[in-house]
Nucleic acid binder design. Structure first.
Lengths: 329, 329
DNA sequence: CTGAAAGCGCTTACAG
DNA sequence: CTGAAAGCGCTTACAG
């Protein structure tokens, strides 16, 4: 059945160390090169990965830890990572943690056991346990979506995103504003995004601007509950959700309560999910470049793995997309 | 740094074959069991996967081939597979082919090289090349979402889905019907789903029922183009899309053309994507149980791998969900 | 129940 | 440039 390096060596009339050298780009004479190449083609030989890894003690696998599989952001980022790794002969291994932090830590150690060459971490939150794990395993790690001074990271410009949105909202004439955020444990979304928003409001809003902040989870269902409560005791002209999902939850709530968007209530979000331009009214949002983030993450990871210099932190641009869900007041 | 089985053996004062036997559930005396266990705990020993696989020539990895990562159906199915595999100490490896059939075939061979124990194939289309690959690798394969007499498979009841929808549409009084399908190369969606629909129309529709069939791709953007064309030269009371994405494209087109849903045009789809109940009007659809399909696929796969008997074909129930997008006429 | 030995398919110094 | 040999960390008959 499957040929081994010994078979190939024998068939080509050389030693297996020579075949191995050929395989790994070492120098061999033109003559032997041809012999070996021919046999390899002929028998369609491919080296056994396990044997390689056992000796080399490393692999060309990059592990990616994701908090969930069913989100636009995750899918797009993964696709980007996968494409870039593939073109560089690396393989992607995915560990889905279903938002369970213990599994996140476990996944890091598991990847280390499997001798992945590097780990890309899409975490919502970076705890001491994360840092400890990263330190212990001694494998390059790249954080995506969050930043931390002790780790390499690649982030979307959340502060800018919040700022652009805040500025836009004020310029559209909104003064009764509700911002639904998320937990501060998620620094990128919970803190930076909101702070950028606040900063813009402070700069452009003037004194008559009234902003109320609420907190909800990343789930649409909870966003609906939160939105229900808000609309019961508040009369904002706009609700800004910290994610498109939250904004979608707000829209759903408005529909249920026969509140017309954007005439009676404007809504905006963050993310730039595909679906946001399919719905009616189309959602105003700040688009993050997830696909590009994934590709960049992969190429940075490869540089880390191969020991090339690589920037400690990369910040990706964002883009405000005005659509129908925000009205002029 | 990392201990090997020899270290453990030495530390415990036994031979490494004994440790190995202990690890693999062979019989050891109570006494040695305790000694070994203690050392393993103490040093947090975990066997090297590569060495294991090199000898055993197989792994506890199940490869999953998916046509795309950014779809509700795929994500949900993957989550189901992953959860079930995890609880059974198997690992999931994902190969995303971005709808490129060559990569699909390559992925099968790649998985074989990596000695995965089984392959779960989420393919839209089964060609001779697929069958050849499956045969050549000699590894258990389970097809999900499509059926084929030569392969184990797990499918959603597409015929029933189409039938339920057809019946529902007729019962709601629709007689001017447009059905937007997809290529017949995708047998499940392109043929079975449509045929079920046709069958119901034939049974319940009577003579005055006019159904026109169109074909589009799985992309929303193309669905929009198709829908534009349809609405230009046709005046149906309802458009049924073969997938929720197509239905979403139809809705978008209706919105753009100021056609009110469902008063002027009803719309329905298939899939039961989460988003379909968040939008307004909420989309009438037939729900497939992707998560359950994933779990079942994983458990069937494990049975195939371990040589237990397993049904050649499994058909999963579907569920019609009437919502706001379909009007009574 | 236990251990010594061979071997899985590679790679890596080390000689020549 | 090339080859013989050792070794990566396991498992698996085979004796005892």
């Amino acid at each position: 059945m499957n040929k081994t390096i010994s078979d190939i060596a024998q068939l080509a009339g050389v030693a297996k160390s020579t075949v191995s050298r050929f395989l790994n780009g070492g120098s061999v004479s033109e003559d032997t090169r041809q012999k070996i190449e021919r046999i390899i083609k002929q028998y369609n030989y491919v080296p056994n990965t396990f044997a390689q890894s056992l000796k080399a003690k490393k692999t060309s696998i990059i592990g990616t830890v994701v908090p969930r599989l069913d989100s636009f952001a995750t899918s797009q980022t993964l696709i980007g990572i996968d494409e870039e790794l593939r073109t560089n002969q690396y393989q992607m291994l995915i560990a889905n943690t279903s938002q369970d932090m213990h599994r996140e830590i476990d996944a890091i150690y598991d990847f280390a056991r499997q001798k992945v060459s590097g780990i890309i971490l899409l975490a919502a939150e970076v705890t001491e346990a994360h840092l400890k794990a990263v330190e212990e395993i001694g494998i390059p790690v790249l954080l995506v979506g969050q930043q931390h001074e002790r780790l390499h990271s690649l982030v979307h410009n959340d502060d800018q995103a919040g700022y652009d949105m805040g500025k836009y909202v004020v310029e559209k004439g909104h003064r009764q504003i509700v911002y639904i955020g998320v937990t501060e444990r998620d620094q990128a979304v919970g803190i930076h995004r909101r702070q950028g928003f606040q900063r813009a409001i402070a700069e452009y809003g003037g004194s008559g601007c009234d902003v109320t902040y609420y907190e909800t989870s990343f789930k649409m269902s909870e966003a609906i509950v939160t939105a229900e409560a808000i609309l019961r005791d508040n009369k904002p002209s706009i609700i800004v959700g910290a994610t498109d999902n939250i904004a979608l939850g707000v829209m759903k709530t408005a529909f249920s309560n026969k509140i017309r968007i954007p005439h009676e209530l404007s809504v905006a979000g963050f993310g730039g999910y595909d679906i946001t331009e399919m719905i009616h009214p189309a959602l105003t949002t700040v688009k993050f470049h997830y696909l590009q983030a994934g590709k960049l993450a992969a190429s940075h990871m490869i540089r880390q793995v191969t020991g090339e210099p690589v920037e400690k932190q990369t910040i990706l641009d964002v883009e405000l997309i005005p659509r129908e869900s925000v009205d002029n007041v």
